[in-house]
């Protein structure tokens, strides 16, 4: 009686895992395009904290979510709640979502107030 059930459960688990692999992921970089992307706009919200820091950016009327590093790395890069505020102009350089209908990117470099913050220094574009 048990073994058909275990076979069923194993199959269900395999299907769920396959579905998981197909879904885009915001952890890591698998959900982003390979080429670099630049976003310019105005900051509408700043979050520096766990599990990772984010900026909300208004770019020509489009609401974008810019993901950054975990707070330890973001703050180590010099980007804290003191250096930027809502309303500031921002340039974010990184990789946008493979799904271009999704207004979301992961930044490796953020420029605010003329200062550059490399939140993923090992991933910045070659100078």
């Amino acid at each position: 009686m048990l073994s058909p059930f275990i076979r069923g459960a194993t199959l269900a688990a395999a299907v769920m895992l396959a579905a998981g692999t197909a879904a885009y992921a915001h952890h890591g970089w698998s959900w982003t395009q390979d080429g670099f992307f630049e976003l310019k706009g105005r900051i509408t919200a700043i979050y520096i904290g766990n599990p990772h820091a984010t900026l909300d950016v208004d770019a020509k009327g489009e609401a974008w979510r810019v993901e950054m590093a975990p707070p330890s790395r973001t703050i180590a890069a010099g980007f804290t709640e003191e250096v930027a505020k809502v309303g500031d102009e921002v340039t974010a350089i990184g990789h946008r979502s493979r799904d271009e209908s999704e207004k979301r990117m992961k930044a490796v470099r953020v420029i605010v107030g003329g200062k550059t913050y490399d939140v993923y220094p090992d991933r910045v574009p070659p100078a």
């Binding site: 688990a13 998981g20 915001h26 952890h27």
Partner: peptide, 22 residues
């Protein structure tokens, strides 16, 4: 018992996906 297995396992998967969707 089968419902319990399916529901709790789904809770686990849904929880993990919070970090990957949204």
């Amino acid at each position: 018992a089968v419902l319990s297995l399916v529901l709790w396992t789904s809770v686990l998967f849904a929880g993990r996906f919070i970090g990957f969707l949204g």
